[in-house]
Amino acid sequence: MTHQKPEILRTSIVAESRLFKIESVALRFSNGVERTYERMKGGGYGAVMMVPIDADDNLILIREYAVGTENYELGFPKGAIDKDETALTAANRELMEEVGVGAKKLTLLKEVNLAPSYFSARMQIYLAQDLYPESCEGDEPEPLEIIKWPLARANELLDNDEITESRAICALLLALKQLDK
């Protein structure tokens, strides 16, 4: 069955903060039904997340505070793509800022959405290999804790209560698929 995209009748910003805009979107579907939805208006240039693997076959994770859950969370390095920056450049910059390494090899695993019914933001997930020491100043409010986790025990991360972000779990599974583990 082929779907025809609904017609956008009108859009308007209904709320705005420093980081987010909430947009109202009035739609007419091909069967004539009209509905109004709200979504977080996309801004910026996208984001990246990297699954770094060092020469000793360790996954490199970070533990950082997440205000949304009011907890320290275990995950992979990630960040926004800056204006006039490619996703690959952003991926390496974020690795340098958050982990203190660069990657000679970055393999795109997948571009993902987070709750596509409500957000238009996209994130590119990369496998980062052939790491080398390199750091640059980041924007984190406190030093991030770097955790090395043996790749051979990667499946145990799925049961770890500290790793709850769906994009990080998705990144881990995509990396394991790419590595055929």
Rank of each mutant, 00 (worst) to 15 (best):
L176K: 14
Q178Y: 06
L127E: 00
L151E: 10
W149G: 10
R18Y: 11
L106A: 05
L74Q: 01
M40K: 08
S12Q: 13
E137T: 12
F29Y: 12
N160A: 07
I22L: 15
E85M: 12
A80Y: 14
A87M: 11
E85G: 03
E156I: 14
D56M: 09
R153Q: 15
S12Y: 14
I62G: 02
K105V: 15
D54W: 04
E142R: 05
K110C: 10
E73S: 06
A171I: 01
L27G: 07
P52K: 06
Y126A: 05
I81C: 01
I169M: 06
S12D: 15
A168Q: 02
V99I: 07
E97C: 12
L172W: 00
T11E: 13
A80G: 10
K181Q: 13
K5W: 13
Q178V: 07
L106D: 00
L59G: 01
M123A: 14
H3W: 10
L88R: 05
L74P: 02
R10T: 10
S166V: 02
N31V: 00
V101I: 06
M96H: 01
L95A: 08
A15G: 06
L144F: 06
I22D: 02
L176D: 10
D139R: 12
M40S: 05
G46H: 03
R10N: 13
A168L: 06
A128W: 00
Q129W: 03
I60V: 08
E38P: 05
A91M: 04
N92M: 03
S24F: 00
E23V: 09
R28N: 08
M50F: 15
K83W: 10
I125C: 08
A152K: 13
M123E: 14
R122Q: 15
D159M: 05
T69P: 07
N71Q: 11
L151I: 03
P150W: 14
A90N: 06
S17L: 09
K181M: 14
F20S: 14
G46P: 02
E34L: 03
I8E: 10
A152H: 11
E142N: 11
I60Y: 07
P133V: 09
K104I: 13
L19C: 15
Q124Y: 12
R39Q: 06
L59A: 09
D139H: 13
I53G: 01
P6K: 00
L59Q: 02
I147E: 00
T107V: 13
Q4W: 04
N58F: 14
M96K: 04
K181W: 11
A154K: 09
E156W: 07
R167D: 09
D57R: 11
A15H: 12
I147N: 09
A26T: 01
L19F: 06
F20V: 09
R28S: 05
D54S: 07
K181T: 13
C136I: 08
N31K: 01
E23L: 10
G68Y: 08
V112S: 04
I62V: 11
R167P: 01
I146L: 10
R93I: 04
E73A: 08
A66L: 05
F76Q: 12
S135Q: 12
P6Q: 05
M1A: 12
E137W: 04
L174S: 03
A47W: 01
H3L: 11
P6C: 04
L106V: 15
T89A: 13
M123V: 07
A103R: 02
A103P: 04
T164A: 02
S117L: 14
A87I: 07
H3G: 15
D139W: 11
L108D: 04
Y45Q: 07
T164D: 00
K78Q: 13
